[in-house]
Design a protein around this nucleic acid. Structure first.
Length: 382
DNA sequence: TCTGGGGTCCTAGGACCC
DNA sequence: TCTGGGGTCCTAGGACCC
């Protein structure tokens, strides 16, 4: 999607159309730009830029806090449209997806026509603009769609992938950030074409997995579907204070609130966490994290808070001011049912029942007791 | 310039087990 | 006293993405 958050805001408030709009929050707060309109980008405003800096570059911009529920709502809408085109849709974020159109020619015609139809369908159904990159590879399609923005379509035909990528700076490759870019620069690698000319072994030796991965992708070799993981690996909440704090009571209160939000989300998703983590960012921006694996998984606010508090006690250097505080749950296990207060009572009863059962088994053998509905292996006939 | 909040994956060392 | 090979799990930090 093109300037997704800003475009949704424009739909909700048409008077914003064509203006410099920045989603992220109060320009005097310690936030960053989440999305900037093309008008604002003319002034050098980019996403992830501190809002204060954006304000200096574009003083007349309209700053909006952002309505993330709305964005999710529109995200579900576009997902439905994508799914009506092909069953194979890999939604990679709220505003980005890969569609596998293999075998869809009878339905949609050649790829260019299909992509054109898609762009129009999205516009018609939601009022939002998107861009499409079409090719045989994930990376190539992604970069092509970047190239096509805004509201464009770029098709790279089979066999042209490597040549399309070659002149581009390595930084354009998704997965190559500031650090990797610098490491590559040391090796005199500036463009994706430079990567193509390296030996795969040498690249892997110097950059590890990233090197091997980069080499293959530089030719656009990544046709296989992305591994789709349904369950989350971790859940977290964090907050940056408006001003750095040292007051322990403020920190504890904030930690308690974060723990409650975390517990709530775990229960909502029917998850239990075995590991609880704490994240501290000091005024110096130095960031430390600590985590502990609990004897048993939990989704209770109190237990999460207690664990986080213990970590805080063992970690916090009181000479420093705290900028950010975060709580994280990982090592997640799905839980068949959610525990209400009633369920807790039931669980206690169940525990007593199981204890009694174990005692009976001790006296009369394992098969003396079994759970209703469970099936213990039948004896062999004869 | 003064750096959000939500995630994923990788690396590397150490504990522990067989 | 000097010394294995394989495996898993835990922890801390960091790169990267949207």
């Amino acid at each position: 999607m093109d300037a997704f958050y800003v475009s949704v805001e424009e739909l909700e408030d048409p008077s914003l159309a064509g203006k410099a709009v920045i989603v992220g929050g109060d320009p005097n707060s310690r936030g960053v730009v989440a999305s900037a309109s093309y008008e604002a980008r003319k002034f050098g405003v980019r996403s992830a830029m501190p809002l204060q800096q954006a304000k200096r570059r574009c003083p007349h911009a309209i700053f909006i806090r952002g309505h993330y529920d709305k964005y999710s709502e529109y995200s579900r809408k576009i997902h439905r449209i994508f799914s009506s085109f092909t069953p194979v849709v890999e939604m990679v974020s709220v505003d980005e997806a890969y569609l596998d159109l293999t075998g869809c020619e009878l339905l949609h015609g050649p790829v260019i026509r299909a992509a054109d139809t898609l762009i129009r369908a999205v516009k018609q159904a939601t009022g939002l603009r998107c861009s499409v990159g079409a090719s045989s590879s994930h990376v190539v399609s992604k970069i092509a769609s970047d190239q096509a923005k805004p509201h464009g379509l770029l098709c790279v035909f089979p066999g042209c992938e490597a040549a399309f990528l070659a002149p581009l700076p390595v930084r354009r490759m998704p997965g190559v950030g500031k650090v990797t870019e610098r490491q590559l620069q040391v090796l005199a690698i500036k463009t994706i074409g430079d990567v193509q000319r390296q030996s795969a072994e040498e690249l892997e030796r110097r950059l590890g997995k990233v090197g091997a991965w980069l080499y293959r992708k530089s030719f656009g070799q990544d046709i296989e579907a992305y591994a789709w993981r349904e369950e989350a690996r971790s859940v977290s909440h964090e907050t940056t204070f408006p001003v750095d704090v040292t007051d322990l009571e403020t920190i504890r209160q904030s930690l308690s609130e974060l723990s409650q939000r975390l517990g709530h989300r775990l229960r909502q998703h029917g998850l239990m966490a075995r590991t609880v983590g704490l994240k501290l960012r000091y005024a110096s921006f130095q960031t430390v994290s600590r985590e502990r694996t609990l004897p048993r998984p939990t989704h209770f606010d109190q237990e999460i808070y207690q664990a986080a508090l213990n970590l805080l006690g063992a970690t916090y250097d009181r000479r420093q001011k705290v900028r950010l505080l975060g709580v994280r749950a990982s090592n997640l296990a799905t839980q068949a049912r959610q525990l209400s207060l009633l369920d807790e009572e039931r669980e206690r009863k169940l525990a007593r029942v199981l204890e009694a059962a174990d005692q009976l088994r001790g006296r009369f053998g394992f098969e003396a007791v079994r759970l209703a509905g469970s099936r213990i292996k039948e004896k062999e006939p004869g």
